[in-house]
Amino acid sequence: MATKSGRVISAEKPFRWKQALLKWEVFLVIIFIAVNIMNACISPYYMSVNGLFTATSSFLEKSFIVLPMAYVLLLGEIDISVGATVALSACMLGISFNAGMPMGAAVLICLLTGSLCGALNGLILTKFQELAPMIVTLGTQILFRGIAEILLTDQATGGFTKVAWFKNLYWGKVGPVPIMFLIFAVCAAVFGVIMHCTTFGRRMYAIGSNPLAAKYSGIHVQKIRFIIYTITGTFSAVTAIFLASGMGSARSNIASGYELEAISMAVLGGILTDGGKGNFPGAILAIFILGFLRYGLGLVNVASQLMMVIIGLLLIVVVMVPNLNLGRIFKKKETKA
């Protein structure tokens, strides 16, 4: 069928090599390979199944936050309370465990705590839509951290290693594969599918691109925001569980700065803070790039502080470069052609 004026509108996506190759993910894959080659040169043990999985254990526990953080950033919002949520959830885990509860129940309480923290953010932000997420989550960040301090004062709560299955969450393996890696892979796959293949995912993109238009298209904007903030809390608790499993104890000051690391990873992955941009594989790639890079530099005793400088610069450069030259250069070429 064509229009009245005889025009046919194509439903085929035009494919351009240049565009496909210039995608951010392609760039990330190249960096990913480069980082791995570098690490392999540094350490002969790195390029083995065992070596690689050991490397992942050094950063995967906090990567669980990146999954929902990608959603939050996709909405064009931000949640800086996740680090404090991790601390509070871990404290609740320790307190309920040391109060004599079975570990299973303590884990559930931990998850519930995280979800409630997230839900509180969601509730405030949906009931008072005038407020910026930055400021609300700044407030709850301090509040959650404060509650953790009230609960634990400056003491640690521990003894988690007594429960074998709990310890195995972080340390255990199925064959050569760490259990944590398996769980992460499943979670990442689910998050990715939701983002790209479901109506929920499409609606997230719509809200991130233009919340008003989304509302007028009949999308439950506030409901979706609430769900996403709650999930963010839940997955902060998941990180708390793995962190507690790995350390065997918890304190009120753990996981500080996790929010910024999670945001950095998502942003490096191409999910920029202005909303509606980026895709999930990019974020996953960024997790592994940063994780492996940190691990590799650690092997050669490059100070972790230098690593901070590198990540910081990377973050700025990654966002700045496309804004500066590339756009102009390519536009000029197009007009000439």
Partner: peptide, 10 residues
């Protein structure tokens, strides 16, 4: 096409 949009592809 029904509303005769001036576009090449969707």
């Amino acid at each position: 096409e029904e509303v005769d949009t001036k576009a090449v592809t969707i």
